[in-house]
Design a binder for these strands. Structure first.
Lengths: 195, 195
DNA sequence: TGGCGATTAGTTGACGCTGACTAGTCATTC
DNA sequence: GAATGACTAGTCAGCGTCAACTAATCGCCA
């Protein structure tokens, strides 16, 4: 009945607006375009999503083909309703920020249960990983000789990663700075160990 | 059996390390501490999570009480295994960045299906909302008279929101700039409409 | 030519999450 | 004093997701 909420469904609509496809074809297309970096994608989920979109009337089976003894492939096309939904959904995603719960936000909100020394170590590890991530993204942007529209989401990621790097560096400094005394309110994590 | 993956479970462990609680008590505590901003939280899920943690041996029922004709309240306490898991889990979250799929990244990767003019409008809407979000977070940080440790996650959010604002502003400029000609590769969204 | 792994294409079951529901109690108001 | 709404406390069904599985075909090497 109602529109799927899975972002993968949005990707399906976006590709079907160009031409009809069957699930497996889309699966490989998504792989080839590196879309898995921007859209969480499970091979198995794709078939569910197609089924849901069909039931919701956003797509419709166009043809069933078969090659040799392989399983049947059902090709789907977008309906007019689907086209409209694609537009509205995407417009909503672009126009209205969604309040989200990144893992690091959760971690930060609970970080008081870890002893400060260990936090500094962990943040240093994180910093290293973030650095690797930064160069990886940079490589993707430089490497793709295509129009910048196609790497716009990587540019966004890059900006966020750099911000996080700066934040973590600042955080480490604040914790270790003997002047400003960060130490006070840490919750004892293992009460039993320091009697 | 295995440890729950729901971040809410991490919050449960983090609070139980301080003192035993029953689910409803934790529910109100989370509400009061504004933790819902950093940890996705459903009243109903909490009971699931307690059950899962119990089954996994990370917490253990301590006592069952009852007031009047109200339902029973089961108080849980952390086990040693739970304490260890809390530590490892949180350390992992702090030390290793997780690859995530923010809605805006998905939107950006598919933005080619919307006509440029509309994208600019939508991004302008987004900018307004991000501005409101920025002042809201700023208010939270300034308003809490407490130790900065307790608003560290809001500071992180603030940094990310500001980065996004700058990014969106830049994106609008790039799209509208007549020199650099962004227009080329937009995918016709509604083929039927412009014959 | 026969055997191994990779690829093609899709199905299934278990699990976890969400939202809605139950059901009693307290405070307030008319 | 009884109707209203908010709070307390917890349960549960439906649905969506994911990982694992099936099962046939193709390429390749010896």
């Amino acid at each position: 009945m109602s529109r799927p909420t899975n972002p993968l469904a949005l990707a399906v609509l976006s590709y079907l607006v160009q031409r009809p496809m069957h699930p497996y074809e889309l699966s490989t297309t998504l792989r080839d375009h590196d879309d898995a970096r921007s859209i969480k994608f499970n091979h198995g989920s794709l078939y569910m999503v197609f089924k849901q979109l069909d039931k919701a009337g956003l797509i419709r089976p166009l043809a069933v083909t078969r090659e040799g003894a392989r399983p049947e492939r059902t090709t789907y096309e977008l309906t007019d309703i689907g086209r409209a939904e694609l537009h509205d959904w995407l417009a909503e995603l672009v126009g209205e920020p969604v309040f989200e719960y990144p893992r690091f936000v959760t971690a930060l909100s609970l970080i008081g249960v870890l002893p400060p020394d260990e936090v500094v170590e962990l943040l240093t590890d994180r910093l290293a990983a973030l650095g690797r991530s930064e160069t990886e993204i940079q490589g993707l942007i430089d490497g793709s000789g295509t129009h910048p529209l196609f790497t716009i989401e990587e540019e966004y990621r890059l900006a966020q990663v750099r911000t996080e790097i700066a934040f973590v560096e600042g955080l480490i400094q604040r914790i270790t700075d003997p002047e400003r005394g960060w130490a006070a309110p840490w919750v004892a994590f293992h009460q039993g160990d320091n009697p």
